[in-house]
Design a protein around this nucleic acid. Structure first.
Lengths: 232, 232, 232, 232
DNA sequence: CATGAATGAGACTTCATTCAT
DNA sequence: TATGAATGAAGTCTCATTCAT
């Protein structure tokens, strides 16, 4: 509306020193698009997220989105793949290098995960996967390979370490791993669904406190001297 | 709700003497539509399920669906109400009348839930709610009021009973309830998402075994004499 | 909701002396349906009026309406025909039998028409015809034959009477008739459209006052000694 | 609004040198859509006109229409605004600047209106408003504010001018304005309803002649020296 | 490369009409 | 004869995707 800015809208006069070079922006595009898509898919789900919204949030036009991803479905899969791939790697070396008590290792893993991922949009990817795997069957295998199997292996190896070192009583590995992980995943899902809605008269969930109580319970339950054998 | 009608639920076994007169059909319609809607919402999600699909699966035309439910959203709410409303009430009765050890009560509640709901489409409602609740704000309040709050109260009352009777050590109620329920919810979510897809090379989840191990762990952790050291 | 009235709803127990006999009701049906349809067509227009509403207002079911009129279009035409047919007849004998001054005759005709028809739903038929003739071409001829032509003849004959008796100066008959009638029709249309809406800050139209002023103006304009010849 | 663009209004005469580039077309779209909508709304009414028809007549697809107007109702309001908004303003100017006899001013206003609007689709808006305003309550207010009130003010001010200058006898302003305008509106309504249908044996209405006679009558009726007797 | 105007398939919803009871 | 449950064509509006600029 005022004359000066007319020049800014013109696409042919970028000043060299302050605008990110065209090359830089181009390289950053895919990541920006994936980030925008992740946020929106987590918030609204796949179907309710419009392609144009993703583009807007990434600061590009609708057409540009389709320059990088040939369809909304492919964009969705790219989002899932990218975020799931990065998810597991973080924890794996921690187990390999850990020196202390196994109980502490588990506490460290869970707490670190919650702090680094649980409260962030990245954990929302679980919600999206849970909601949509059945509509995108090839994601199932991917999720199994990239998340379930390595996470299971990670936790199982930690539990095995505890048993081997005489810290834990012998327990079925997979089921115990599941019992350990379930509340973590649950908290992430809750955080991005009901937990994100303004609800009156419903006790808010405190993730850190819940994790602490959960670990306290389960670690006591893993102790070798835990007398009384539970009920079958 | 009362035993006799169990037979009516099976949609494929009309007895010869009761030809489906207009009147009979009208009475059965809501249930047939809710069943069809539940199955489809759980399989594909709310947004991806077309109203016409629901009608077709219930054996009626698109228009008939709208004779019974004024919109897809209201249909969804009716599904939630119908399937979860009665559920909580049953559990509350069970807790009130139970006579034995509290640990056994918890085992009973969990196992009954899995048998009655966990393996059925009803538990898939959790998946749908997790996926779509942020797009239906009033559903969030409804779900909090009708499901989360009473379920939490139910479990908390059972834990309190254990503490009062000296069976459990004192623990924070809500967090413990969450730690108890999380794996149950998690199993249901898994069952209706990744668990429903054919996946190779990934250990299948055995719900009953997992629940058993989970309860064993947690109940040991609740025991009064598990004095131990807690976590760092 | 209270027991006694259950009997009233039952269609099989009419008490002979107070309910209209089935025969009576059957005979009254078409008129009841036409009245209901007229009211609704005038209020909401043809397209926005639902067949079921008409039936409800007439106290019958949807199916019954179709027993008497094979389609909504035919119902509409019947409404127009019935109400237009009766409309003109009323005025015609008034002219034939009138004895007094012609100016008074015109005043009498207009005022009587407004009192008897203008303020009632019947005048709304004009609105409906104006709105829909182009979608129901065969009504155009009907309207021309049943309303325009006889109404024009009626007014023209009155004007001619005035000229013949030396009360009015010679004027073109048809155009003068139109100039006389237009405000009457206009008031009826207004009454059933904008005049029926709650509008703030817009002077309400007073039909009687407007008619009085209109007649005063036009009758002065018709006077033989009205000196000065107006502008062409 | 300014003379040069008059040539652009003709939709069928693109000059060879201005090929319809994307940009040019975008600029012309709103006008093309409004013209198409006006024609169809007047012909068939608001409810009976399908959004897709409007788009087709404007030479675009269904979706494009919704790019410019968010709903059929908003499209209708835009049609009313565009076509009637400027109209009143013109009349107000004409009254303010007029120098001659008030009777001539009224003749000028009416004749100009008929020439500029009465015989064109624009005057059909009255028909649509009369037919549908009760179904769109906010449109009623809009129409009252934008059309009825200013038009009434316009005519009243002209009559007042005549009274002030001793040309007219004192008359009630609003009622006289209505009596003046009613035949004009009536002619427009007729022109777009019965007048648009092929009818046999019914005297055709000659708008110009009718207006001339109407004005002649009323202006005589307004003259100060027509002392006469009024009506009983 | 990037844009955003344009498209048209498809979703939800309404309602005139039919027909078994 | 009267009912009202059922149907399905049709309408409004959305949005993923394309393509001229």
């Amino acid at each position: 509306m005022s004359p000066p800015q007319a020049a800014e809208r013109a696409p042919s006069t970028p000043r060299a020193e302050e605008l990110p070079s065209r090359q830089r922006r181009k390289e950053a595009r895919p990541q920006e698009l994936l980030d925008a898509a992740l946020a929106l898919f987590v918030e609204k789900g796949f179907a309710a997220t419009r392609a144009e919204e993703v583009a807007q949030r990434a600061g590009v036009s609708k057409g540009t989105l389709y320059l990088y991803y040939p369809s909304k479905e492919e964009l969705f899969k790219a989002v899932v793949r990218q975020n799931l791939g990065a998810l597991i790697a973080e924890g794996q070396e921690a187990v390999a290098q850990y020196e202390g008590a196994t109980g502490d290792l588990l506490v460290f893993l869970m707490m670190t995960w919650w702090g680094r991922v649980g409260g962030t949009p990245v954990s929302g990817i679980h919600k999206v996967v849970v909601a949509e795997v059945r509509n995108f069957p090839d994601l199932a295998q991917f999720y199994a390979d990239e998340v379930i199997t390595p996470a299971d292996a990670l936790i199982c190896s930690a539990i095995q370490r505890g048993i081997d070192r005489g810290e834990f009583r012998p327990v079925p590995l997979h089921e115990t791993a599941l019992a350990l992980m379930a509340p973590v995943i649950f908290l992430a899902l809750h955080h991005h669904s009901v937990g994100a809605c303004p609800v009156h008269g419903c006790a808010q969930v405190d993730p850190a406190a819940t994790l602490r109580v959960h670990l306290d319970l389960v670690l006591r339950g893993l102790q070798v001297r835990g007398a009384g054998e539970g009920q079958a």
